[in-house]
Design a protein around this nucleic acid. Structure first.
Lengths: 101, 101
DNA sequence: TCGTTAATTCGATAAATTCGAATAATCAAA
DNA sequence: TTTGATTATTCGAATTTATCGAATTAACGA
């Protein structure tokens, strides 16, 4: 597995961030990473096919929402909260404070 | 022109709101409505075809972001700020405070 | 080296986006 | 009331994006 691209969050637009979070599966992933801390893709799995989940992680990663590091056969994902807070003050806190649907 | 559907904002999910705002054109429309107040579709026009703009307004409307009322041949659009604030406390304020890209 | 596990890539199908052209709705002037 | 101008929506086609299952890649451990 080659290393994955992680953008500088300063270069990410607000529209890109909202696009990444504007999907129920991706928003749920972000919420769980915020609440439960870093974890693998498979532990975050849900109702979609694993290839689709991989696609969702790619979008989250390329929007600067998550950081993924290799660990054995797994990829451990974490929310880039501090960087997002700096780039988009108050946004993630407000989003994460909204009650689940 | 028949009347348009406007959902109860209480029924709108956060993912739907973020999906609606997760497009550069639609985000710009919301920002301008917040900054400049209500206005017609055409005064908000931009780089996209008018049929595309009409589609963007439909998405914003169905996500509870904008309210559109008829006025002559125009449609006057406004941001449903108070209702959004009640449903998603702090979210719109944080988003609108982010500097333009 | 063989399995096992975890995740990505590939190829096909389904769904959404975009555009220009055509249509609809409203108003104002003749 | 009919005609023309303005504004916005709807339609149909082309492009792009999303989703799935199958195949592949990568890393580990027996």
């Amino acid at each position: 597995m080659r290393e994955l691209f992680h953008p500088d969050v300063q270069q990410v637009s607000l529209a890109s961030l909202l696009y990444a979070l504007g999907d129920p599966v991706r928003l749920e992933i972000a919420r769980r990473l915020a609440r439960e801390g870093e974890q693998s893709c498979s532990s975050l799995c849900c109702e979609v096919a694993k290839s689709t989940l991989s696609h969702h992680f790619k979008i989250l990663r390329e929007a600067g929402v998550v950081f993924s590091r290799k660990e054995g056969t797994q990829r451990i994902n974490s929310l880039r909260k501090a960087e997002l807070d700096q780039r988009f003050p108050g946004v993630m806190d407000a989003l994460l404070a909204v009650a689940d649907d």
